[in-house]
């Protein structure tokens, strides 16, 4: 394999490996921007993966599967919202409970769907013209539709957060819900909405695994990617564009390790596995040092909003 082909192969599989993490991280990002921590990402991804797969098998249509995964993820988000927004439960506890719940329920639901192939999984399509650009084409433009969709979501989310009033409101309820409330922004219903949207994106991340990157259902197939997504949001400092770069970086680490092994170069597996967390700690340290201890996290992250205690 030529040198160029070697790098193209690594970068292109970094994009594929990064995409489920990217979807989940975008979901986590939206939820956290609204001031709600979500440690249920792993469970939501699993529920998304199994529901998407089941719907795709039953209907024979992977798009319906993808939609079902988002709905199921949204339902998980709804549970989280009821617990944390209405009942003001501890967000960490509720999230962890959802991860356990999602792991168990997905295993139960998927029992009879193991070892069945999907009729029409999402496959790579080369975009006309773009796919023929040297280097960039094979790395970026010969993927499945869900990858292009994730870019659209990143772009839309960036625009929404930084250029629209509704995006400003989202930031407000995460930064200072009391002030937002006094301005007449409906804090409770908006938090509900964004926690559900976040759940939908986590579900989509799970469906990417079961319908595109490894089209099948196996119990626990997310294998910890939900937790990487949680770290990624911190790494990305709650910004969609950085989440995109970060997810490909995190996803690329495995691709790099495997390709190096195939080329006969041996790097310690433990070192590579450490890198995502090392990067996250490094970013945190740099940001903390630069901004004098103020992290870019939403101001009220993790704190339930209680009108009576304003």
């Amino acid at each position: 394999m030529g040198e160029q082909a070697f790098y193209i192969a690594i970068l292109s599989s970094a994009v594929i490996a990064g995409t489920p993490i990217l979807y989940a991280a975008l979901g986590e990002l939206v939820t956290e921007r609204a001031g709600v921590t979500n440690l249920g990402v792993e469970g939501m991804m699993l529920i998304g993966a199994v529901s998407g797969f089941m719907a795709a098998i039953v209907t024979g249509n992977s798009w319906i599967g993808f939609a079902a995964a988002m709905l199921a993820g949204g339902a998980m988000g709804l549970i989280h919202a009821v617990l944390t927004v209405s009942l003001r439960a501890n967000q960490v506890v509720s999230g962890l409970a959802l991860t356990l719940f999602g792991t168990g329920l997905s295993g139960y639901l998927g029992k009879s769907y193991i070892g069945i192939p999907v009729a029409e999984p999402f496959r790579g399509v080369s975009l006309p013209l773009l796919g023929d650009i040297p280097l960039l084409g094979p790395v970026l433009f010969r993927h499945d539709v869900l990858i292009y969709l994730s870019w659209a979501i990143v772009l839309a989310l960036w625009f929404f957060l930084s250029r629209t009033r509704a995006g400003l409101n989202l930031q407000a309820i995460g930064e200072n819900p009391g002030a937002a409330d006094s301005l007449g922004i409906p804090v409770f219903s908006l938090r509900y909405f964004y926690v559900i949207v976040g759940g939908m994106l986590c579900g989509a991340g799970g469906a990417y695994l079961s319908l595109a990157s490894a089209p099948s259902w196996l119990e626990n197939m997310t294998a910890g990617r939900g937790w990487i997504a949680v770290a990624l949001v911190i790494f990305a400092l709650w910004k969609p564009g950085r989440a995109l770069v970060g997810s490909y970086l995190f996803g690329g680490i495995d691709a790099l390790g495997f390709h190096l092994q195939a080329a006969g170069v041996h790097v310690s597996h433990f070192f590579l596995q450490m890198l995502p967390y090392l990067f996250t700690i490094a970013v945190l340290t740099i940001v903390m040092a630069r901004r004098g201890g103020r992290l870019a996290a939403p101001g009220s992250l993790g704190i339930p909003y209680d009108r009576e205690q304003r």
Binding site: M1, M221, D254, Q261
Partner: peptide
């Protein structure tokens, strides 16, 4: 370094096929 991670195992196989 995993027994059980379909996406990762697939990726490892891909890099062998690439090679």
């Amino acid at each position: 370094n995993t027994w059980y991670d379909p996406a990762k195992e697939k990726q490892a196989a891909m890099s062998l096929l690439d090679a």
